[in-house]
Design a protein around this nucleic acid. Structure first.
Length: 468
RNA sequence: GUCCCCAUCGUCUAGUGGUUAGGACACCGCCCUUUCACGGCGGUAACCGGGGUUCAAGUCCCCGUGGGGACGCCA
């Protein structure tokens, strides 16, 4: 049997971290087996589905490089097909019309709750033979009342649910449109899915879906229910609670490599290994190794992974990922040092791409003011004279390169009988506006001769004015 | 409330009957160092509780407890 998996989000909001993880697991499972991975948009709730959400899902998948093998499937394109299946179930006697009003159902559930029972449909229209005038009925699936459903879940193991715990779920609304449990079954069957990998918030739906599949004379696929991701407070991460769009991670300066690595490793492991390339992921992943327990999302570790990838990914990849940030943080890198050179010297001190851009700005732009703390600490009464000496020495340089810059700074220290720690720090503030940068020689080299000298001159003026 | 799932350091996890219970993030200390980082070395820190089974239990079973999920004409 060829392996076929799908990711089936509903377009009622952005794509968030939990969705991405099940998408990743499905993708990995298919890729490992050389099978197919499909994207299906579950847009049967026309009230809440939006095109913006569809776009957000597509964008997210693209950014994370989770590619699918066929054009995305939209369930709204399958309404005719669902109608046929619903009719078939009715004709077989496996489904029936129910005329109960929403209000009647609500009071029924309230009563059950009051009796400390599980709220569920009591089957009052099961054996009804006459329609109720003027009421458009919903269609309910006639769930078996006896026996049990066994799910051989790849992650959870054997899960047994008694049919008497299940009620007759609605498969078609009163307006005739199909509901989730019906559409999932039809599409998974029609597309011949071999494995359904989804969040375990769906595990209660699974026995119902299996029963529908059996009523249709089909064998269910293999299921794998991945546990939820929890927030820092141990509560389920949801759109309402702490979960943000994956694109927010892009905006915050995370690399897709880091996010994917983090998500795969959250609830899954391969011994002590923390870092996985895509190839390794595909090679080593086995859905059966996914942990059955929910796990808490830890952004510190994500940050660490992000830093790791900033440090180790090819510069070309970083440049590619940096484009969006350069545009959005409005940093023009066309005039100044080569971006690749800046990345090389800055990558060890950035946790995110946002940091990287922000802390590299002085290579390309002059700054209006000095970092207050840095200026206060490093600019003293003696600064103008020291800076003047440095300026004179640097301006006499014939070759603007790190070795010579370094020599000149050291020589100036000697000439002034000062230690480097009296000269270096103020010079750094003068040239970068901040207290942190790569080594001085490298920094000055990349900032460039002209800009360096200009900035030193400015710092002299600034300090003269300050101490006048 | 009912049903389902789960339970090792603060967090992510390794562990598949006999381990000084390992790794990673975070935290702390030391080293490196022209700042900030990177890096190196070291440290604090865990088997939810109670019963069984067994010569032996973090590992198997049961019961608690705790956490999560589900209980829609949402998906």
């Amino acid at each position: 049997m060829t392996v076929k998996t799908r990711f089936a989000p509903s377009p009622t909001g952005y794509l968030h971290i939990g969705g991405v993880r099940t998408a990743l697991y499905s993708w990995l499972h298919a890729r490992k087996a050389g099978g197919k991975f499909l994207l299906r948009i579950e847009d049967t709730d026309r009230e809440r589905s939006t095109q913006a959400s569809v776009d957000a899902i597509l964008d997210g998948m693209k950014w994370l490089a989770l590619d699918y093998d066929e054009a995305p499937v939209y369930q709204t394109d399958h309404f005719d097909r669902y109608k046929v299946v619903i009719q078939q179930l009715v004709d077989q006697g496996d489904a029936y019309p129910c005329y109960c009003s929403k209000e009647a159902l609500e009071t029924m559930r309230d009563q059950q709750r009051a009796n400390k029972e599980k709220p569920r449909y009591d089957g009052r229209c099961r054996d009804r033979t006459t329609p109720k005038e003027g009421v458009d009925p919903v269609i309910r699936f006639r769930n078996p009342t006896e026996g049990e459903v066994v799910i051989d879940d790849l992650i959870k193991g054997k899960v047994v649910i008694a049919n008497k715990e299940l009620d007759d779920l609605i498969i078609a609304r009163s307006d005739g449109t199909p509901t989730y449990n019906l559409t999932v079954v039809v599409d998974d069957l029609d597309k011949e899915m071999s494995h359904v990998i989804r969040g375990d918030d769906h595990i209660n739906n699974t026995p119902r879906q299996i029963n529908i599949m059996h009523a249709l004379g089909k064998n269910p696929p293999q299921f794998a229910h991945a546990p939820m991701i929890l927030g820092d407070d141990g509560k389920r991460l949801s759109k309402r609670h702490g979960a943000v769009s994956v694109m927010q991670y892009r905006d915050d300066g995370f690399l897709p490599e880091a996010l994917i690595n983090y998500l795969m490793r959250l609830g899954w492991s391969h011994g002590d290994q923390e870092i996985f390339s895509r190839e390794e992921m595909i090679e080593l992943f086995d859905v059966a190794d996914v942990n059955g327990a929910a796990s808490i999302f830890n952004s510190e570790k994500l940050l660490w992974l992000n830093q790791h990838y900033i440090k180790t990914l090819p510069v070309a990849t970083l440049i590619e990922q940096l484009q969006w940030h350069l545009t959005h943080q409005k940093l023009d890198v066309s005039k100044g040092p080569a971006l690749s050179d800046v990345i090389e010297v800055q990558r060890d001190r950035a946790k995110t791409l946002v940091d990287l851009v922000a802390s590299s700005r002085y290579f390309y732009e002059d700054f209006e003011s000095y970092n207050e703390k840095a200026a206060k600490k490093q600019f003293k009464t003696a600064t103008p004279n020291i800076m003047q000496a440095v300026h004179d020495a640097l301006s006499s340089l014939t070759h603007w390169e790190t070795g010579e810059i370094n020599d000149v700074i050291l020589a100036t220290c000697e000439a002034l009988s000062l230690k480097l720690n009296k000269v270096g720090p103020p010079l750094r503030v003068a040239v970068t506006g901040t207290a942190m940068s790569p080594s001085l020689d490298t920094t000055l080299y990349l900032v460039g001769r002209e800009r360096t000298l200009e900035r030193i001159t400015k710092a002299i003026a600034f300090n003269r004015a300050k101490y006048a």
